[in-house]
Amino acid sequence: MSFRVLIVDDSPAMRNFVRRVLEVSGFPVSECFQAGDGEEALEKLRAHPVDVILSDINMPKMDGEQFLRRFSADTSLKPTPVVVVSTDGTDVRMQQMMALGAKGYVKKPFQLETLREVLEQVMGVPDAGA
């Protein structure tokens, strides 16, 4: 089994970093899409439904919080787990994003295996990197 992934982050450097981490971690990815903000992510999801979304919070136009609200409310889109990947590691922000429906939260900086472990947990894929 492999997964279609959408990476949402306004930093191209960070998007490429996350893509590379997924490649080297052994998490099974069949296709990897990228978006620079929440608005672009919604457009991408209409054209390319995915299995899991990795989203930053602090982005221009539509930030991660707005994206999560809009995505969750849009019944035309395939329900998809969202994992937040953010520099904002404060407890209050984590609780807020989880309350909005995020299924996982990865604080930057993160160990490479942490991202894989959270994705395995969210997607129910035990020990994909072993």
Binding site: S11, P12, A13, N58, T87, D88, G89, T90, K108, P109
Partner: peptide
């Protein structure tokens, strides 16, 4: 440039999480 920008963002977030983990911050671009 992109990498230096991301570095500043990450160090700021990491410092704030250590200073006051129970508060909410908004970090600019």
């Amino acid at each position: 440039d992109e990498v230096m920008a991301e570095l500043s963002n990450m160090v700021c977030g990491s410092a704030l999480s250590r200073i006051d983990p129970s508060s909410k911050f908004a970090i600019s671009h």
